[in-house]
Structure formats: structure tokens, C-alpha cells
């Protein structure tokens, strides 16, 4: 009963129209391969954290595990670190797209130019080694449609 009333007088932060509280966006970061280089992903995760994101890191994970985390953690964006063969990543992407169509995906890691083109064609943005953190954070803002503070 008072729920409606609160909404009516604009007191409810969840009523986004009337609210100025920022919804916290959540990003899942996973590695598709069994290759444990953590330099790159850690730097990116820290940058996203410092940009105000909650970054859920699950390390090396299979497509199934990534999907499970994507659903249970209700994330707004998935970041994949691709360390090996593109097909392994494609399987994970396919699994996410099948069940969570609306969740955008971006990728980084040692990705050959040919594989990068393949990923782009699927709507997955690719940030190869040497990409700037500013660009990556901007991409996250854009993909999660986060309002700039």
C-alpha cells in the first residue's frame, strides 16, 4: 500500500525517473582458456573497479560456468579474456547469447586479427594487447548504458 504512495511522491529511489541514485552496474570477467596469465585481466578489472563497477572475477571458466555466473550474478556486461583457440571462446559466447541475449560481451587477450574479425561479426568488441584502459572503460559505459556521473 505505502509502496505506491512512496512512488507517487517520488521518494523511492527505485523509481528511476524520479531518482538520482546510481544503479551499480556489474561486470563478469572470465578467462576462456586454461592459460593463467593474470597481468592483463587484473589491470582491466582494477580499472573497471576504479571506474565504479562491481567486477565479478571467476578466473578460468568453461562456457557453462560463465553462463551460470552470468545468470546468477545478474551482470550487465561480460568481459572475456581469450587466451587460446577462438572456438573455445565462441562456445562460451554462443551459450551466453542463447540464454542471455541482452547481455553485451567484450573481449581481450591474445586474439589474432582473423579471430578479432570473427568476434566483431558476432557483435563482440575486441580490445587486443596495447588497448588503452580509457577506451575499455568507455566501452563498458557504452555497453552497459551507464549514465555518466
Amino acid at each position: 500500500m505505502f509502496l505506491e504512495k512512496l512512488l507517487a511522491i517520488g521518494m523511492f529511489p527505485y523509481n528511476s525517473e524520479a531518482s538520482n541514485t546510481m544503479e551499480q552496474k556489474r561486470i563478469l570477467m572470465a578467462k576462456t582458456g586454461l592459460d593463467g596469465h593474470w597481468r592483463g585481466p587484473t589491470i582491466v578489472a582494477r580499472a573497471l573497479r576504479d571506474a565504479g563497477y562491481e567486477v565479478i572475477m571467476i578466473g578460468m571458466a568453461t562456457g557453462e560456468e560463465i553462463l551460470r555466473a552470468c545468470v546468477d550474478e545478474d551482470v550487465d556486461l561480460v568481459g572475456l579474456n581469450i587466451g587460446g583457440h577462438i572456438n573455445v571462446a565462441l562456445r562460451a559466447i554462443e551459450a551466453i547469447k542463447k540464454e542471455r541475449q541482452s547481455v553485451p560481451i567484450f573481449a581481450g587477450g591474445t586474439i589474432t586479427p582473423a579471430s578479432a574479425r570473427e568476434l566483431n561479426a558476432l557483435g563482440v568488441e575486441v580490445y587486443p594487447p596495447g588497448s588503452s584502459l580509457t577506451d575499455i572503460v568507455e566501452a563498458a559505459d557504452r555497453l552497459t548504458q551507464r549514465k555518466q556521473a
Binding site: A45, R49, A69
Partner: peptide
Amino acid sequence: PSSTFSQGALLGDRVRMNSYNH
């Protein structure tokens, strides 16, 4: 804990809870 500066957070506990992942 969330960062007091950015309100962001690194949440990594899930990594270690893989015994029942599937």
C-alpha cells in the same frame, strides 16, 4: 568491501567455489 572512492568492487570469491560449479 566496495571501494570507498569509486563504489566499485572486485568480487573474486566465486573463483574458489568451483567444487559444485555445474
